[in-house]
Nucleic acid binder design. Sequence first.
DNA 1: GCTCATGATTGACG
DNA 2: CGTCAATCATGAGC
Length: 357
Amino acid sequence: MDAPPRPALPSPAPSLPPPGPPPGHDTGDVLQQIMAITDQSLEEAQARKHALNCHRMKPALFSVLCEIKEKTVLNIRGVQEEGLPDAQLMRLDNMLLAEGVSRPEKRARGGPAVAAGTATPGGCPNDNSLEHSDYRAKLSQIRQIYHSELEKYEQACREFTTHVTNLLQEQSRTRPVLPEEMERMVGVIHSKFRAIQMQLKQSTCEAVMTLRSRFLDARRKRRNFSKHATEVLNEYFYSHLSNPYPSEEAKQELARKGGITVSQVSNWFGNKRIRYKKNMGKFQEEATIYTANTEGNTTEAGGPRSQASCPSTPGSGSSGHFPLTSAGDALISLQTLASLQPAPGRGGVWSQVSVRA
DNA sequence: GCTCATGATTGACG
DNA sequence: CGTCAATCATGAGC
C-alpha cells in the first residue's frame, strides 16, 4: 500500500513499453500486457497491474470489454435459462421421502407430528415384521450415507461458491465483472452441484429399491414350513376336522409352536380347508396318520375332541365330497356339530359340508 | 425342464 | 375382519 512509488522497474520485458508512452497502441497491445502479467513475479505483477490501471487507455479498453461482455452475457443467458426441468429431481425427492430416507431420523425438521402418520404411503407393507429389523438397519445405513454425502456436497458447494465469488471480486478490479454475472456464475456452480446431488439421490433410490426387493418382497418368496410346523398345523387341523377354524388364541399358540407368524397360520388353514375340501381323497392318508397321532398324544390345549378317530374305511359311505374319512365320521361330525358352536363368522360352509354327509 | 406341492396374494362376500 | 376361491410364484422331486 504505502510502498514507495517505483514505477520504473528494471522492466526486462522489452515488448512492454512504459505506461505512458505514445498513442497508437491498440487494444491488442494492452491485452498482451495483461497476458504477460501472469509470467511475472507477484511483486512485479502488482506493480504492472497498478500501471495498467493507470493507463490512459484503460477506460476505453474497459468499456470495450464491457460491451463484449454484455453481448456474451445475453447469449449465454438465452442458453442458460433453460435449466433442468426439476421433474425428475422432484420424483427422486418424493421417493426418498416415501421410503423414509429423506427424514434424517435424528432431528425431525418439520416436527414430530409428521413422522407419526405418514409411515409409508406406497412403502413398507407393515405386516410380517420378522426381518424388518434387519431391513430397517440397512435402510438407516443407507440414510446415514445419504445424509453425510449430501452434507459433504453442500459444504463443498458453499466453499466453492465463496471461493469463486472472491476470485471474481478480485478480478473485477482489472476486468469488468457485472454483479449479475457473478450471480450467474453462482447459479452455474449450484446447478452443477445439483446435478451431483441428483446422482446421489438416484443411486440412493436404487439402493433402497434393491434393499426392498431383497427383503420385503422376499416375503413373496415361498419357503416351505419346517416339518415340525407342518405337523403342528396338521395335528390341529385333523383333530378339529369338523370345525377347523382356530380361534385367535389358538392361532397364536400354533404360531408359537410352529415358529411361524399368526398370519401364516391363517394362510395355512385357509389353504388347507380349501384343498382338503377339493380333494379329500388325496388327504385320506394324511388324515389317518394325524388322527392316529392325535389319538395317541393329545397335546392340543384346545381339547381335541377325537371326532375323527375312526379308522378310515375309504369310500364306504361318504360320497366323496365331504371332509370325512368314513361314514362313522359323519355321525361324529353331526354329534360335534350339535355340541360345537358354529364356526366364527361364516363357519356355515364347512358345517354344511359336514352335515350333507 | 416338467410337474406337483405349497405358501402367499388378491378380490369378493357376508 | 375373517373366510373362500382363484391365482401366482416358487420349492422340490423326478
